[in-house]
Nucleic acid binder design. Structure first.
Length: 793
DNA sequence: ATACTGCATGAAACT
DNA sequence: GTTTCATGCAGTATC
């Protein structure tokens, strides 16, 4: 359909509109006409068919002096108020019609002349119509109003615009009333794509899918919130076919001149049914604005009526507040950088249009009445824009917000002043997700995928959907203090893993880079937690607690306890294989041990920042543990490594010096560093000795000249002899040349020069070790193997 | 060394 | 495949 007529919507500006779309069927015959540009709806005589004004045209809201169209729901200055047959001025939000909250002061233009609220009608073409209904007189209107006040059932609304997008979530009963089927609508609107681009179509039809009372969000701050549970007389629903007759509830329509219920709202309630996010927030489509229908539901304001009233009360102003959108603060939003990323659609819909990247300063009021000035600007981004508010830190801090909390932007009318509000995140949100994710991971690692039951998955999905902290905030999640705590717990959990007690469960031992790897066909089980004490000069001890008498029994360090363990299982110490046996050491000493263990854990937590930076270097933690063992009288902590490698263990895995951040200093005298130095020195001396002997044999037999050795054997050291290839096994004599030995000796001297070798007394003996040396710093190649438990985690 | 700035990147969401 | 947006990062400014 095309014509050259001018759009009647004075704000459309589409004076040259040449294309008109066919809208829905008119009860008078034919089809409504839609303005291609603004989506405004006209019938064939160019005026809105919705309210059937006696005299089409514009009138003025005498309250706010804004022009009011004939009642066309797409009029910029006329709020949708279809649900109960009323209209409201979008500027002053004072509604008139059957369901308007009664203003404390009468609107001068109350029930304008000629205004007749619509009611549902039946149209032979598209079935029940819930808009553009029959004309009724004022007497009938009064009657309806009384009926509404009498019944007050639970209204709900649904808008067609949403229906198209959110078809999947509609309740089965949703279209049981006089609403065209999707097919009908799609047919009718097959050429009306722009209709959904400007957010107007949603005003055209209403439906019902919520059973919960949804109060109107039409507020005037000077007006007490009226209870808007309401109804219409079923008669007003107009003639409909019996099988299509809407229920009483369906027939009435809540008067929403504001963001209405949405799919999201429903979704949230579904969540609440599952015990998550159990608030009664309902996401509402945003208020009028440019491209408002493009706003993602997650940005729809989920502000409760009480909160709105609270804000209204806080502002102590006789104004109307309109929630526009909200956003969950990301880590970067709430961070010190002071930049709040605005959803593009929201920024373009509700903030001033800006052409320059620098943007412009924008004043936003908080709910306490304080004024903040932010820089509203954008950055070019992939042929698009990224809108930010700069300088929000003071405001965020003032409101004591952090990542995960929500800021809500609203508009204060008259004056179109922006207001920023907030909502704190629910407490369990983050940890819940982390726990579940960890739980899922853990389950998986144990080979128990089946254990990740549907509830958990659902829970995770729900949380993901809710996006309180989105997936893009993984880092935030893991840097959370709770997460750190959890991480430690996770490591501890690893420690408790035991091979399945099943007799059929036998270990398959394979060698990977000279390390024994035990593999089991069956998933591990949790063992009993024990405590280890490490003395600098003595052997490490393990302590296990009896499940019966709760006494602590000393155990050999390599014993792994089953989940249930009692004194009678203490085969290693027959004297204390009974609960009646006394404690091995006095209670005070035990307390001391446990306190040290706790202190160690506390310290670990306190060093969370360091842990963050160093993660996932569990070896560093081991080194720390080793230091702890050396300098403390004794230490007790749960090992965080493979069960075989306890604190104090000096095997090649555990003694690897730290690398990267958190390196030990050259003059560090910790157990790890001293052991490494000692072993390296011993090894090199032994090599020197062997090579000298070999050379002697060669020289004596008139063999190879020394210079010739440079060509082959020297390669592994590099031309400058500065690089040492420790991937070769230095024990293999055939790989070592005299030059190698000399150069290695030089390396050792150089290393010694860096690290004053002040070997403690009693540790100066030459020590051999079957493992190849792995030295981290400063010029050594990193170890090539992956520690066992790191590969697990 | 630290803070600020403007853009780039890539995962996730969306179409 | 495209868009959005959280965050990284390099260059620059400031202390």
């Amino acid at each position: 359909m095309s014509s050259s007529k001018i759009c009647m919507n004075g704000l459309c500006g589409a004076k040259t509109t040449t294309q008109w779309k066919r809208g829905w069927a008119m009860k008078a015959g034919g089809f409504a006409t839609l303005c291609y540009s603004c989506g405004n709806v006209y019938d064939q005589v160019n005026y809105c068919e919705r309210f059937h004004l006696n005299e089409p045209g514009w009138r003025e809201c005498k309250f706010c002096e804004k022009p009011i169209h004939c009642g066309c729901v797409v009029s910029k200055y006329l709020h949708e108020c279809l649900d109960l047959g009323g209209i409201s001025c979008i500027k002053c939000i004072i509604a008139r019609g059957t369901q308007a909250p009664k203003p404390t002061q009468s609107h001068p233009n109350d029930l304008p002349n000629g205004f007749i609220p619509f009611s549902a009608t039946w149209h032979p073409t598209i079935g029940n119509r819930v808009n553009g209904g029959a004309a009724i007189d004022k007497g009938r209107l009064t009657q309806l109003t009384e009926s509404i006040e009498k019944h007050q059932p639970t209204p709900s609304t649904f808008s067609l615009g949403h229906q198209f997008k959110q078809d999947k979530t509609r309740l089965p009963s949703e279209l049981s009333i006089g609403i065209p089927s999707n097919k009908d609508i799609k047919t009718l609107f097959s050429n009306s794509s722009s209709l959904f681009d400007n957010g107007r179509t949603e005003l055209g039809f209403s439906s019902f899918y919520e059973s919960k009372p949804e109060p109107s969000l039409t507020y005037s701050l000077g007006i007490p919130l009226a209870t808007t549970k309401s109804s219409l007389d079923p008669d007003s629903c107009g003639p409909v076919e019996p099988e299509k007759v809407p229920s009483f509830k369906q027939c009435q329509r809540s008067r929403i001149s504001f963001p209405k219920l949405s799919k999201s709202g429903l979704s949230i309630r579904s969540q609440s049914n599952k015990g998550i996010a159990s608030d009664n927030r309902v996401a509402r489509p945003p208020a009028e604005g440019r491209s408002r229908n493009q706003l993602l539901p997650r940005y729809w304001p989920k502000i409760t009526d009480q909160e709105l009233l609270q804000i209204s009360g806080d502002l102590k102003s006789n104004c109307t507040i309109t929630p526009l959108f909200e956003k969950v603060l990301s880590a970067s939003d709430a961070g010190r950088i002071g930049r709040l990323v605005l959803p593009k659609a929201c920024a373009e819909a509700y903030f001033p249009a800006i052409n320059q990247s620098e943007g412009l300063p924008i004043r936003i009021q908080d709910i306490k009445g304080g004024e903040w000035t932010f820089q509203f600007r954008f950055w070019p981004n992939n042929n698009s824009r990224m809108y930010v508010l700069e300088g929000v830190t003071p405001c965020i801090q003032n409101m004591q917000l952090q990542a995960g909390d929500t800021v809500i932007f609203s508009r204060l009318d008259p004056g179109e002043k922006l207001v920023i509000g907030c909502r704190k995140a629910a407490v369990p949100t983050d940890t819940q997700v982390i726990f579940l994710q960890h739980n899922s991971l853990f389950t998986k690692s144990m080979g128990h995928e089946a254990m990740a039951n549907g509830d958990q998955k659902t829970l995770i999905q729900e949380k993901k959907k809710s996006r309180n902290i989105g997936l893009k905030n993984k880092r935030l999640l893991m840097h959370n203090k709770d997460a750190l705590e959890l991480k430690v717990t996770w490591e501890e959990a690893h420690e408790l893993l035991r091979p399945s007690p099943s007799p059929a469960c036998k270990a398959t031992i394979s060698m990977i880079e000279n390390y024994e790897i035990e593999e089991y066909d069956e998933p591990p089980v949790f063992g009993k937690k024990t405590l280890f004490t490490v003395h600098a000069s003595g052997p490490q001890e393990q302590w296990g607690q009896c499940d019966n008498c709760f006494k602590w029994r000393k155990l050999p360090p390599d014993v792994l306890l089953p989940p249930k363990w009692t004194c009678s299982d203490n085969v290693s110490d027959p004297e204390r294989a009974s609960c009646s046996a006394p404690h091995e050491i006095c209670t005070k000493e035990l307390e001391s041990i446990f306190k040290l263990g706790k202190d160690f854990k506390k310290r670990k937590l306190a060093e969370g920042k360091v842990v963050e930076e160093q993660e996932p270097s569990g070896l560093d933690a081991l080194a720390t543990a080793a230091v702890f063992g050396e300098f403390g009288e004794s230490s007790a902590s749960a090992t965080t490594r493979h069960p075989r490698h306890r604190p104090g263990c000096t095997c090649i895995v555990c003694i690897q010096p730290p690398s990267g951040k958190g390196k030990h200093k050259p003059n560090c005298f910790c157990n790890v560093c001293l052991t490494v130095k000692r072993r390296f020195k011993t090894l090199m001396l032994r090599k020197k000795k062997r090579e000298a002997e070999k050379l002697l044999v060669v020289v004596e037999s008139g063999g190879i000249a020394i210079n010739d050795l440079n060509g082959e054997g020297g390669e592994s050291l590099g031309k400058g002899g500065k690089q040492l290839d420790l991937n070769c096994d230095p024990i293999k004599e055939e790989d070592i040349t005299m030059v190698d030995a000399i150069k290695i000796g030089t390396q050792l001297e150089w290393h010694s020069a860096l690290v004053p070798c002040s070997t403690p007394e009693g540790t100066s003996e030459i020590e051999g070790h079957p493992d190849p040396p792995v030295v981290g710093q400063p010029s050594m190649a990193p170890p090539t193997h992956t520690p066992i438990d790191e590969s697990i985690s």
